[in-house]
Structures are given as C-alpha cells and as structure tokens.
Design a protein around this nucleic acid. Structure first.
Lengths: 206, 206
DNA sequence: ACCTGAACACCGTTCAAGT
DNA sequence: ACCTGAACACCGTTCAAGT
C-alpha cells in the first residue's frame, strides 16, 4: 500500500544490495519493513518465494538483522499474516455500507466487489497461504462466512424461505471460490452470462 | 494403490534406513519405486514435503542413487505427474459408461462420483500440485472440461437451451471446485440440501 | 537498539569410485 | 546397471562482536 515512501536519491549502484543499503541510508529497519516486503513478495511470486535471503537482499541487510527482529521465518509469516488481516478487515468493511441498499442492488454490488481483476490475484495467493497458516485460514474463513450470511439474508429479504436462501447462498459462495481457483480451466462467463446467472439464482422455481 | 507388495520380513531395525534397506534386500530400485514413494508422500503430507532426502530415507538409499534415476527433483515430479495422469485417466474412464444412462440418473451418479470422502483429499493435493506443475495443471484442466461438457450435454438432453445448459453446468463445476477448496469454511450441505440443489439446477424458471 | 560476519546444520546437486 | 561417499552451493539459524 504505502510503497513509495522511501525517497530514492539516485546513487550509482555497485550492486543491488549496496544500492538498497544506500537508499535506506542511515535509517534502520523496523518490523513493518519486513512484513511489507514479505507481502510484496507474496503477491508477486507466491508464499514459497518468501525467503529470508530474498528479503535481506531486497532490504539491503544481512540475515543476522532479520533474526534480531524475528525468532524465525514462522514468526515473520505469522506477523505478516496479522498485518494483512488488519488491512483486510478494513477492506471487508465496505460490506457494512451496502446492507442498507435494496436487495437486488445489494447482490449486484457484491458481484462487482468480488469479481474485480486484482481481487483474484490476491485471493489466490492468500487462499494458498491459508493452507499453511492457521491465522490466515481463520481470516479467510471469517470472510467466507460473512459473505455467505450477507447473501443469505439478502435472499430472505427477497422473499425466499430460509432453506432456499441458504441453499442458493451456499451455491453462490462455492461457485465464487471455485471461480477463483479454476477460472483458467473453464470458459470465463461473459457479461450476459453473469446477468443470466443472477436472474437464475433469484428466480422462483416452476 | 499397490502398497503392500513388498514382503515385510521383520528384522530388528538398527535405524529406519537400515530397516528399509533390509526389507528391500538385494532388489534394486527402478523409476517406479521413486514415483510411487513420491505419490505416497504427496497424499500424506502435500507437495512441499516431497524431498529427495525424505524419499531416500524411505527407500533406504543415498541421494546419489536418486540422481542415477533422475536429473533432478523437477524431473521426478514430472515423471510422477505423468504416472499419476495415466492412473487418473483410467479412473476418469468411469465417466464413459454413464453416458448411456438416462439424464436424471446421470446427474445423480456424477454427483456421487465427485463427492466421495477420499476424492477431496486427492483433489486438494493434486490441485495444489497443479499450481507448480504444468503437466498436472493440464490433466486437471482436461478433467474439469470433460465434466463441464458431460454436465452441459446432459442438461441439453433434458430439454434446456444451449445457453441455459452451459450456464448451469458452469455453475455446478465452479461450485464443485469451490466445495473442494472451501468446504471447511462454510456449513457442509446436508443430504436433503444436496437433493434440493439438484432439483433447483434442473428446474425451469418462472 | 540494530546490524555484521562467521559458523553450523540441512538439502539439492555433482561425480569419481565401488559392486 | 545401480549405488556409495565425499564434496560443494544454498538457505535457515545462532551468536559473539561491532556501532
């Protein structure tokens, strides 16, 4: 998020590491510098690429420095997870506002919020991460449930029975998660198909 | 699959490795021994746990042995992938038989095939693996598309238009994939809910 | 308070030498 | 043909020593 805060006085770089060290100048690192660096690598190259050596090169320090701030790579991951969860909850707060919209518009708005291009990237990375980090898994789970309940409540508002609402909300949630994980494998639905989908999910049966 | 083929003459084990070496006796290893070992670790502990050292301990040999059979860990993974794909295609062949069933039963049968307990485990492991191995990704994609088309064709047989059939088949596929990845996060649908789901997906709109 | 530098264990990789 | 054993590079981890 706040990436370009470090002023880049241009100095002829002898090596990447020397250059980074020079850019940093006298300023010393804090925990936050490591977590934002880790988050950056996560989104660019995935969890597996988050390596102490890589981060050290990127920040222009040696590995001993890392171990002054953290007990080990697990703690770094955990701390980064917490930091991400905080930001993430802020972002999810956009959901609160829309609980006052009329049901139909609420559904449409949620559809938009959850199908943005960048969202996929982050979602995939984070859900991958969740497989090896309980804290992240918990955050993802909370978000999933929140979306499920918002959808379900909306459908109830539209006149569906609790059972029908839950079945359809569950269907939408699973389809959304599946879309994030498998959209390379199947034809991506067109705009018209998405509209038809919403028409179907909110239709009464014959 | 074929696991208990090695006769386990019980010998007092000095160490795990010595024990494994003794069990193997004079028999020397082939490529297959390595791939089945890798597959075993994959299902038990995930891709990340497939390490040359681990496999060597398990098979009772040194790492030099590994490098006589394979150029590196990537090739091991690739070969294991091919071996898995072969087995997997055999398993997927169960789909051919059911293209002669009446549409309704076909849907129900596919539902059963795709929601077995063990299937999830394997699916999750394999889809995780697919993220770092193109060959596996390709096999998974082929399977997804096959399921999609079978579903879509079935719905057409039931009297739906091509557009409706594709929309609903896509919905089912994505929901299935999402269910594999996210069934810990949301309430698992009951038997009754699953039936209601199939009723819904095959219903005409009002 | 924050970092360097050297050390060690572990894993992937290579290769000459063994049977 | 298949494997051992020793070597090396790389990464995670530790810690005494520097500023």
């Amino acid at each position: 998020m706040t990436e370009g805060t470090r002023d880049p006085r241009p100095i002829a770089p002898v090596s990447k590491r020397k250059a980074a060290a020079a850019a940093r100048a006298t300023r010393r690192l804090g925990v936050e510098d490591w977590t934002t660096a880790a988050l950056g690598v996560l989104l660019r190259k995935g969890v597996a690429a988050i390596t102490i050596s890589t981060l050290c090169d990127e920040l222009g320090v040696t590995k001993g420095s890392f171990y002054w701030h953290f007990d080990g790579i697990d703690q770094l991951l955990e701390t980064t997870a917490q930091s991400w969860c905080a930001d993430h909850n802020d972002a999810a707060r956009g959901f609160h506002d829309l609980e006052e919209l009329p049901p139909q518009q609420r559904l449409a708005r949620m559809g938009e919020l959850l199908t943005g291009e960048r969202v996929w990237q982050v979602e995939l990375a984070v859900r991958d991460w969740a497989r090896t980090n309980a804290k992240v898994a918990e955050a993802v789970k909370a978000l999933d449930q929140r979306i499920f309940h918002t959808l379900s409540d909306t459908l109830v508002d539209m006149g569906f029975s609790t059972e029908q609402a839950q079945m359809r909300a569950g269907l939408m949630c699973f389809a959304g998660i599946g879309f994030v994980h498998g959209n390379q494998n199947l034809p991506v639905p067109s705009e018209e198909q998405r509209r038809e989908f919403f028409r179907f999910i909110t239709s009464k049966q014959s």
